[in-house]
């Protein structure tokens, strides 16, 4: 089961899905007093960043 979950996480990162869990872990570890984004806010912020600059896609 762990292998499967690991595989899913690898595939998701490769195709470029933002990883909310990792963001949460990071915020809890490093910035415990800061407010965290909700999953929806996080997803929106990530997508906006990805599609607003050259360099996310090639010919």
């Amino acid at each position: 089961m762990d292998v499967l979950r690991r595989l899913v996480s690898v595939v998701r990162t490769v195709i470029g899905v933002p990883d909310y869990e990792r963001y949460l872990r990071h915020m809890h570890a490093r910035h415990p007093d800061c407010a965290v984004l909700t999953p929806a806010e996080f997803a929106k912020a990530r997508l906006d960043a990805r599609y607003s600059r050259p360099g996310s896609r090639c010919c």
Partner: peptide
């Protein structure tokens, strides 16, 4: 600058896959 979204230390094979998917297109 680790920030959990833009700057994230990632396994090199995952970065390889991500980078390859980004550079390889119809060209």
């Amino acid at each position: 600058k680790s920030d959990g979204h833009d700057y994230v230390p990632t396994n090199k094979w995952v970065v390889f896959g991500h980078h390859f998917a980004a550079i390889a297109g119809p060209g």
